[in-house]
Amino acid sequence: MREHLLAERDVTLLDLLDRILDKGVIISGDITISVANVDLIYLGLRLLLTSVDNLEAMRAGGPTLRAASEQPFHALPSEVDQSSALAQRPSSAAQQPHRRACADAAEARDRS
């Protein structure tokens, strides 16, 4: 019984870690966050990931290059929960400039 309680506490602690270190209001910019270093890499990777995926979508599109580039974000990685609007919102801002860049790239390819 005692062991069972210990296990419950450990499980609770790990659930807490998952939340308190990873979620919640992030206030980077105004303040220092203890994991700021990695937050930067995090964001960078998110952009990289989107761009690689877009590249794939554009290539896969072949003749329908323009169509693919108009909606490049249908090609998000399969792990993304498409049904969850909340889950996606935080990254959309970061993707905006990118969307433009990709559209430009596609246009350049079209012209050439």
């Binding site: 450990d10 499980v11 870690l17 998952d18 270190l21 203890s34 994991v35």
Partner: peptide
């Protein structure tokens, strides 16, 4: 436990 530990191992780390 094992699954949660893996979740935590993937958390942002310093």
């Amino acid at each position: 436990m094992a699954e949660l530990e893996r979740t935590c191992a993937a958390l942002p780390q310093r």
